[in-house]
Simulated scan of single mutants.
Amino acid sequence: MATRVGRFLGLVTSVLLLVGCGESVAASQEVSLHVSGGIAGVQRGIEVGPGGAVTLIDREGRHAGRELSGDEREKLGSLLGAVDFAGLPARSIDEGSRDRFEYRLAHAGRTVITDRSTDLGPADDLIDHLESCMEARRAGAVQHTPTRS
């Protein structure tokens, strides 16, 4: 009887661990990048939610964007796995620079603010990827916007 109970508890524990892992994998894809600054006062951003859902941010507000492709999600997961967010400084800004962009990268409760004047290793690659995803969706939105005559 004790063996059956032990097996049952082991099975329940395994199922709970698998369900928990599935949630953490989906949550681990949640990341955002907000870019601001420059002479023109740029404000743009991208937020990626579970499953690759994309929200674009600009001066007019928040807009749904095309979901990440499988390749984009795969690369995002790889880059997120390579970044040691806990080991990054919360702020990496050259305070002496005047006209700069600030990049606010957020993931798993950690936020890193950088002007990209310091090499942040894999975090820089992640920023590049998110900017690429953002620009691809912004370009697509511009191409599909009807023109007025």
Rank of each mutant, 00 (worst) to 15 (best):
P146I: 08
I113D: 02
R137G: 06
G45V: 05
E30K: 13
A108F: 04
R4W: 08
T3C: 06
G51M: 00
V35P: 05
V54W: 02
E95K: 14
L105V: 07
S28T: 05
A90H: 07
A64L: 01
V31K: 08
L56A: 11
T55Q: 14
S69P: 08
A27D: 11
A64G: 02
L9R: 14
L79I: 01
E102Q: 15
T13V: 01
S36A: 09
T118L: 05
E131Y: 03
E102I: 14
D84W: 06
G121L: 08
L80E: 09
R66D: 14
L18D: 09
G10R: 09
I93H: 14
T147K: 13
R138I: 14
A2H: 02
G10H: 04
R138S: 08
C133K: 00
G61C: 06
S92F: 01
L126A: 14
A82P: 12
R116S: 07
S92C: 00
R59E: 12
L88A: 02
I39F: 09
S97L: 11
E23D: 08
G6K: 11
P89D: 02
A27I: 02
R62A: 15
V54E: 03
H144L: 14
G140M: 04
R91K: 12
G96L: 12
V83A: 05
A106H: 08
D94H: 15
R104K: 13
L9W: 00
D119H: 05
I113M: 07
G37N: 07
V54D: 02
K75V: 03
V12D: 11
K75S: 06
G37M: 07
L105Y: 09
V15E: 10
T13Q: 01
R98M: 09
A141N: 15
E102W: 03
L76K: 02
T114M: 04
T55W: 00
E95Q: 15
E135I: 03
P122S: 15
H63S: 06
E74A: 15
V5Q: 14
E47Q: 01
Q29V: 01
S36Y: 00
R59P: 04
E60H: 11
A136G: 02
L80Q: 10
V12K: 11
I39K: 13
L80A: 09
A141H: 12
L68V: 01
G20H: 09
G65V: 02
A2D: 08
P146D: 05
A82F: 08
E60D: 15
S24I: 04
P50N: 00
S132L: 13
A27M: 00
Q29H: 11
S14A: 15
I113F: 01
